[in-house]
Design a binder for these strands. Structure first.
Lengths: 209, 209
DNA sequence: GCCTGTGAAGACGTTCACAGCA
DNA sequence: TGCTGTGAACGTCTTCACAGGC
């Protein structure tokens, strides 16, 4: 069923489903219905069934879904049955925190390279042992380390420039923490993590609603 | 026009518009058309006009929008014409990075309280001078400091418990960085900042697309 | 009986196309 | 002429409702 267009929201939800399923595994639950899983994720049961239906049939009628099988299948769909190599660009407070953050490694995302424009930082090591390189080493180091995803964690005014370098390397995708829209070539995937926008959303709802 | 339902995506875009407008102000641009602004934000021009139309009429036909007026109006809509008081709960690497992050203060978001369950951290001060309190002081300290928004930056397994405390204080909204869905009472606003999910999205697109 | 898988219906958001106005 | 403001058309996503199968 891969040929029909899959909503972006479906992919995001699949990611949430794996989390809920991991909790179920920890609790020794072996089978789950779309109804139960839906409650855990805060979505509609039909939504779950439809999301899964884009990729095949994973359940047993009258029974539900086998938790371990389902999580395996979803992870395979998402491409989480491999390790992904990341590079961090900009190792300020936030960048360092991300590299050290255990959620990434738990999920199979490994930081294998680090870059910063600050001459004082270049050559120094992060707590993980990762050496900080100058930005002009980006192509060389990223290719050598097989970097697939670049994580931009620099001030907004440098973000586009960094993105251009990452596209040139080439890496395959970018996770952008800088509060700015990044232009990238057609087909090149950029995901934004934008907490200012989320805060503004809160501010709006607390003001108006 | 406040009585008709406003799409969540509209609010998110308003936030992006302010950013683009701030760049225009820096570049001394005084008037902008929906077409130009749309290009800067990567959206459709009609989308911008429709988004603004939910809240009134801000442009001049045949001319466009006056940049300074428009940014003022949008900020007012979003509730950014005041300062917001935040509390950070969980001052690990990421929590510290957020408190120190200048994007928050630039936008009028101030961290006025900090909490952590680690006994070693309690009583210590962050680089900003903020004292770290024990979680059981949450009600007392938050009320005293007038905290409006709680920022959860603790491991996933503690997030719901922290959220419950924050709801009890009560704060008015929650920004959640923990990778888990938080249950909150009807009408209580929770925004999630979820970089694992964003990475999973990248992984999917790099695998399938 | 129970729960999945799925076409059809409904809700929602975006884009078009043009009327209205400087 | 140029650009906003907006109803109508379009497309997309979500939910319903039930057929299919254990």
């Amino acid at each position: 069923m891969k040929f029909l267009k899959i909503p972006a929201a479906t992919i995001t939800r699949l990611s949430l489903y794996t989390r809920a399923l991991e909790v179920l595994i920890r609790d020794q639950v072996t089978v789950v219905s779309s109804k139960t899983l839906a409650e855990l994720c805060g979505v509609n049961p039909a939504q779950i069934r439809k999301d899964l239906a884009y990729f095949g049939q994973f359940g047993v009628r009258g029974v539900g879904y086998y938790v371990k099988e389902l999580i395996f299948d979803i992870k395979k769909i998402l491409g989480l049955n491999k390790e992904w190599s990341l590079a961090i660009v900009g190792v300020g407070n936030l960048g360092c925190a991300l590299v050290a953050h255990e959620n990434f490694s738990k999920q199979g995302y490994r930081f294998v390279a680090a870059f910063d424009a600050d001459p004082i930082k270049i050559g120094r090591k992060l707590v993980t042992g990762l050496v900080i390189h100058a930005p002009d080493k980006m192509s060389e180091v990223c290719r050598e380390k097989g970097v697939e995803i670049g994580v931009i964690c620099a001030p907004a005014q440098f973000a586009q420039d960094i993105a251009n370098r990452l596209v040139e390397v080439p890496v395959r995708g970018i996770l952008n923490f800088a509060p700015t829209q990044i232009q990238a070539p057609e087909g090149f995937k950029v995901e934004n993590v934008d907490f200012s926008v989320k805060l503004d959303n809160l501010a709006y709802h607390l003001t108006a609603g």
